[in-house]
Each structure stands twice: as structure tokens, then as C-alpha cells.
Amino acid sequence: MSTQVLEASPTPPQERPAKRRRPRNRLGPPWLFVAPALLCYGAIVLYPSASGVLYAFTDWSGLGGWSFVGLRNFDSLLHDDRALGSLRNTLLLTVAIVVVQNGVGLLLALGVHARIKSRMLLRAIFFAPVVVSPVMVAFLWKYVYNPAPNAGLNGVLGAVGLGSLRQDWLGDPSIALWSVAAMVVWQYAGYSMVIFLAGLEGISKDVREAATIDGAGPVKRFRYVTWPLLAPATTINVMLSTIGGLKLFDQVFAATAGGPGYATETLSTVLYKEAFVFGRYGYSTAVALVLALFVAAVSLVQIRYLRAREDQA
């Protein structure tokens, strides 16, 4: 019977098989699932954030009343050496973190993807720092960065005959920023590793075997097969580490509080201090707004570029 029906009314070639459609007059289940979370997110994050934008145009001190000051806060920001210095530091930190964290993460992922016996244990060890609170990590690294010649990292360098490399890791303004970056990379390289690992697991063994049969060595296999197919994982890692770098606060504040001088001040530490230390909530909101727009702009540009790369791959 069904054969007869099919013969009697053949499906026109231009028509696609009928899709299961949900009734339009009902809120579809996916939205119903999302609604409670969206409601909470809107009430707790979106609404306060949007209403907070207003304060960027005021002289609010956090106490009592306020008045509109137009664009004065933004004008001050453009002439604020400390804020501009912190922007430079933030960018340098972000670049360092994105490059090194993802580089190390990729190497770790390739290492623990190999068929070695202890790979599960190593994965757990490399990921372990990610679950530690960033503030705790900063406090621990303050011990590692103890400037005394026989303590922490300096002690280790001395013990292995590299005493000449001893540094005042957090106290020397010329290297403090990089010391903070190293701390962040140590903590989050495992995070990048997990994402790259997921990407590696998704690459078909057949593709690599085909490349091997075609005579590609390990380097060529990585360059022409693995690396292009890791593009989606790279996009996610670069995006997340960029956003994380641009809004970096906990580790910097706990390790150096922006010092020595302003050597490790980031946009986030500046906006924190402006609000909660100096009581200039209006100006601080202006800094926060600029930071948010900056992060959004950088992320958009990045995602466009990286998505294009994925399409090529």
C-alpha cells in the first residue's frame, strides 16, 4: 500500500523531506529549558550591567547623590597615564598569555595524546592547577618568586648551577609583568591542553594513516593534517585565553596589587581601585565600559579571522 502511494505521488526532486515542525503557537522546548537560566541571567547580569552604564556618565562616589558629567570620565581616561599604562600592560599580558599558554597547551596535548602508559595520570596532573583558586595560585607563587637567593625559584636556579639567572621576580619592574604571565600560563596551560586534546581525539585515525602511507613524517603530518584540523579547538582556545587575559584581575591583584609602581597594573586592577579604593565609581564605570567594549571588539575580530581559517581547513 505504501508503495502504491509513493508511486502515485512521487516526491518532486526540488522538495526536501518534510521536517518535523514544532507548533508555532507554543514556546518550543529548547526555549523552555533556557528560560529559567535566561531569566536569572537577565535579572542578575544583564539588567545591572545595562543600568550600570548610566554611572559612566556621572560623578557618583558610591555614597549619596550624583550628577551627570557628560563625557568627562571618558576624557579623563584618555589623559590618564596610569590607565593608558595599564592598557599597555593588559595588551602585553594578553599577547604573552595567548601565545605561550596555547603553545604549551598544544605541546602538552600532543604529549598526552600519544600512546604512553601514564597518559591519563599526566592529563590529570597537567589539568590540576586549573581547579585551584587563582588567588591561592598567586599566593603560592609569591613563595616561588621569593627574591632571596636560596628560596623558591632562585634557590632551584642556584642549586642547578644557574645562579646568574636569579631575579627579583615580582619586585623588578622590568620583569614583574612577565612573572605574572608565567604564573597565569602555569595555571591555565592545562585548560588549553584539554581543549586541544578534545580536538585531537576528534581527528580520524584514517586521515593520519593515509598521510603516513603517502609518506608524510611526524612534522609534515602535524603541519598539513593535525594542525589544520585543530582549527576549531584553536579558535576556542585563542578566544578564551584572549578574554581571560584582557580581564585578568585575581592573580595580578593577589601577587603584586599592580606594583611595583604601576608595572603590573591592568585595566581590571585600575577599575577596581578607582571604585573601591578611591571611591570614584563614575570614572571606574567608564573604565569598565571601555574594557567591555574593547574585549567585545577584539573577540569579534578574532572570531571572524579564526572562523575564516576554520573554513579554509
Binding site: G171, G261, F278
Partner: peptide, 21 residues
């Protein structure tokens, strides 16, 4: 007169100790 003088003093001393200023 404002809450920024004291933290500025901190950073000035750190910069002086580092011979940056």
C-alpha cells in the same frame, strides 16, 4: 583630601626603590 594620595605614595616609593624615577 582624596583616597588616591596614599596609594600614589606607595607606587612612588616602589619606583624610587627600583631607581625608576
Amino acid at each position: 583630601p582624596n583616597a588616591e594620595v596614599q596609594p600614589t605614595h606607595f607606587t612612588v616609593i616602589q619606583d624610587l626603590l627600583a631607581k625608576k624615577i
